[in-house]
Design a protein around this nucleic acid. Structure first.
Length: 569
DNA sequence: AACCCTGTCAACCGCATCAGT
DNA sequence: TACTGATGCGGTTGACAGGGT
């Protein structure tokens, strides 16, 4: 006789029932455990009572013993879950308050999908609740074409990152832009994250690479689109390669010589177009031409913090988390974010595929990663290995000569970096697997099928995968973030966007950095595999380009960005 | 009324980690 | 060191309800 739900509703199962193997499962199925079929499915109030009583007597823990001693027909896991999510005292019921929602957003920006950690900051809330809330939120915002994070969050993060950079005097080549950002000429308020900020000044140094705080946020947002566009589908490789030929030949030249995005664009209207910038591009447009950033708000997907929703999100690409992910110990603030682990940790769920590698050497933060940051890290690691350990000592060549302080810092950083090195991807993904896992984004936009019906204009033409589409938000449905706030903040973020994309010289350092340059180039090439890799290297070095798709400027000091040169009609 | 869509909630599953042996 | 069990975490799924067509 099978147990029915109604029987279960009685809650108490007789010993007879409990001991009975129950040849048939109840309506919710069950799993055999030591000859006992454990009940699955919804809990009854009687079961709850049993569990509560048990915990009162024995305390939490030892959940497997519950079934043995209480007569409860549930596995330990189920008991623990039930207790944690529903029965334990001080659980807060009901929907999240606005404050809680805001906090979740902030926390998620920092932690990513670390629900349990987030729950620790929300008394009475469970990880499951937060997870459910966030997933719902993602869907909602995606459908509406809204940024996953409110621009304030992105902006704050970026500011912190820039500050982080300036503190170390790194990337002085972009000083102008950084200054612009830092001076906060746009009246950008520190709306959020004040409670999360760290006292950066106490940091003796800020590691170079892991500085992905704000950058990473943008980057990861970028990634969500990049994995759609950057991860160029095989079908379109040839197209991309062709087109990149033209672009990169001029583009890489700039990057070679301390490429400055704005300088570059100042003389390259076309390039500006690629990023959806109006042109002639005015590098000082942030102050001279507020209309640009205002009325055109939303013209930058990334800049809007629209990390995912407005992208032609590929099915294979996880929507999540353009997030800054820090270890919980980093909760002190952004400044403390300059540790490697969060970077890779953050990669988390962008890529859905299971790990292919066996590597676990890098700790938990590395698992399931797949963000570009980590990808590039992986690539560098791989490439560095290729270039033999003798090069290790010279890795600090990425620093600006003469800058001893930075040199020291960077050496440390490099050491940390090397610590993460592993011949096998710490991400559990080979580069090729990662690429292959990404659903192609058709240049024709076919992959936009799943995109929300946002009003989209593609600048002039979409050239860089980084930029993806430039969405104009048409609505805001998020309760926490009003349309006005979105708009306002989006406006500000636009200013930053190009820098976030190209304020870097990952691809090609100054010739001074020759060795590192080779390493990085090789790294990306490694990522691309033999086929594309060689072509990439050709492009990266400004050599003749036989095909056109490749990785654009990626940051070493700042924002690891990979830009796809996509097709021009 | 039927159907569809969406949001919410609860629970399960697989994997990772950790501690004990 | 390897194995095992317990626990925790994150992803996913399914049931259900409510609203719109």
């Amino acid at each position: 006789m099978s147990r029915t739900t109604s029987e279960s509703e009685d809650g108490m199962l007789s010993n007879n029932q409990i001991e009975s193997p129950l040849g048939e499962e109840d309506n919710y199925g069950g799993s055999a455990s030591g000859g006992v079929v454990l009940k699955k499915g919804p809990w009854t109030s009687a079961e709850d009572a049993i569990l509560i009583e048990y915990v009162k007597k024995h305390g939490e823990g030892n959940w497997n013993a519950v079934q043995k001693h209480s007569g409860l027909f549930r596995c330990g896991k189920s008991c623990r879950l039930r207790w944690a999510n529903h029965l334990r005292p001080n659980l807060k019921k009901g929907s999240f308050t606005q404050e809680e929602e805001q906090l979740i957003i902030e926390l998620h920006a920092k932690m990513g999908n670390k629900w349990a950690r987030m729950a620790a900051h929300l008394p009475g809330r469970t990880d499951n609740e937060i997870k459910n809330y966030w997933n719902t939120r993602i869907k909602r915002r995606q459908r509406a074409g809204l940024p996953l994070y409110p621009p304030e969050v992105s902006l704050q993060a970026l500011q912190e990152s820039q500050r982080c950079l300036n503190i170390n005097g790194i990337d002085s080549g972009n000083k102008g832009l950084h200054d612009t950002l830092q001076t906060n000429n746009y009246g950008i308020p520190d709306v959020m994250f004040d409670n999360l900020k760290a006292n950066q000044s106490i940091l003796p140094y800020i590691p170079e690479l892991p500085d992905i705080t704000a950058s990473s946020m943008l980057m990861k947002g970028l990634s969500s689109s990049q994995y759609g566009s950057f991860m160029s589908p095989t079908l379109h490789r040839q197209k991309h390669l062709r087109e990149a030929k033209t672009l990169l030949s001029s583009f890489s030249g700039g990057m070679k010589n301390e490429f400055h995005l704005f300088d570059q664009f100042q003389h390259n209207d076309k390039a500006a177009q690629y990023f959806g910038l109006p042109f002639p591009f005015d590098p000082d447009a942030t102050t001279k031409n507020p209309e640009f950033f205002g009325e055109n708000q939303g013209s930058h997907t990334l800049a809007n913090g629209d990390f995912s929703a407005s992208k032609p999100t590929s099915e294979a690409v996880k929507l999540e988390l353009p997030s800054l992910q820090y270890s919980e110990t980093d909760l002190g603030g952004w400044g403390a974010s300059c540790s490697p682990s969060p970077l890779i940790d953050s990669v988390d769920t962008f890529i859905q595929s299971p790990p292919t590698g066996t590597v676990d050497s890098d700790g938990p933060s590395l698992r399931n990663s797949g963000l570009l940051d980590a990808l590039l890290h992986e690539a560098k690691t791989l490439s560095s290995a290729k270039n033999q350990s003798s090069d290790k000592s010279s890795n600090s060549s990425t620093i600006t000569p003469g800058d001893n302080a930075d040199s020291a810092a960077l050496n440390i950083c490099e050491t940390e970096w090397e610590d993460y090195g592993d011949p096998i991807s710490p991400l559990g993904h080979t580069a090729t697997s990662l690429f292959s896992e990404c659903t192609p984004i058709s240049a024709s936009g076919s992959s936009l099928d799943e995109s929300p019906p946002t009003e989209t204009f593609t600048g002039s033409k979409r050239k860089f995968g980084c930029s993806a589409e430039f969405n104009v938000k048409s609505e805001s449905i998020d309760q926490t973030w009003t349309a006005d706030r979105e708009k306002e903040s989006s406006t500000r973020l636009d200013i930053i966007h190009p820098d976030a994309l190209l304020d870097s010289d990952w691809l090609e350092h100054d010739s001074t950095y020759g060795k590192d340059q080779v390493i990085m180039t090789d790294a990306i090439a490694t990522l691309l595999g033999d086929d594309l890799g060689s072509e990439y290297k050709q492009m990266a070095t400004g050599a003749s380009i036989s095909h056109g798709w490749g990785l654009g400027s990626c940051t070493w000091n700042n924002i690891p960005a990979v830009c796809q040169i996509s097709e021009l009609p």
